[in-house]
Amino acid sequence: MSLKYVIKEGTAGFKRAKLAVTTSIFSLFIAVLLLGILGRVSYNVYTQAMSLKEIQIEVFLFDMDERSVEEVRNQIEGEELVTNVVYISKDSASVIAAKELGAGVTELIELNFLPASFKVEVNTDSGSELVESLASRIQNIRGVDEVEYNRALLKALESNLSIFSLIGSGLGILILLAAVVLVYNTIRLTIYAKKDLIRAMKLVGATNGFIRSPFIVEGIIQGLIAGTLAVLSVFAIFEFLVPIYIPDVGIVAWPFGRWYFLVGAMVGLSVLMGWWGSRLASRKYIAETYISG
């Protein structure tokens, strides 16, 4: 099979069926653009939510000597989920309280009634149930008076993140499905526009694989063009339009901090859909085309 011929025919298809090709590229572009926006927004929402989820448990202690404090610290640090433990003495607690509550409560704070405590940081991947059981284990350590953490916020974040992930994935799958159907049908249109060419090729004894190859090259090129346009649009939207027209949103970062992950995924997906759509559509249509019409 002549590669030169296949590439020449594949690119010539753009001139021969302009409307069908434009429709095909446009539908691919819309699909990949939507997926790109969804990907970038989802990543940012997710990382924001994860940073909120950083859990801190406050462990208030009874009055005790330094050795006992160290024993409690050792036991807490021995827990698998615990990533960091900071001790706040009675004096430090008073200073912090004075700072937070203001001058009006100075006399009250001078009574030095606030207990010493530990601020315990927990692995952010821990679910609420694990945190709950950790809290109850800490509560049972000798010398611990009370254990506090924001149960409600953790549970709300947890359930909202699951819902968000579900909606995000569902939306992504829906867009992908719609895109695949759209791409398949528009590429079928492109192929249908060339039914005379297919009949003539069959007439002179071209194999189905040979007939298919220019369409597949065309599908890949369509995917490449649509993917590039979608990437440029995502860039324009998040680097120029959002900062100018919706500045409150702030910076919507590239996923994983690098532009090329999303760009690569978008162009790759677009090319894949172009290839797949043209392969499927041409396979079916060519098999169903008869020389005699």
């Binding site: 011929y5 003539a200 002179v204 004894g205 005699s292």
Partner: peptide, 30 residues
């Protein structure tokens, strides 16, 4: 089909390419 030459009443020429290319096409696809 390569062993057969087939001619129809409706000419089935590709209107977007010239005479040379219409004939060359039969050999290029093989």
């Amino acid at each position: 089909r390569r062993r057969l030459g087939i001619v129809f009443q409706d000419f089935q020429l590709l209107q977007d390419r010239n005479v040379f290319d219409n004939v060359a096409f039969a050999l290029q696809v093989t």
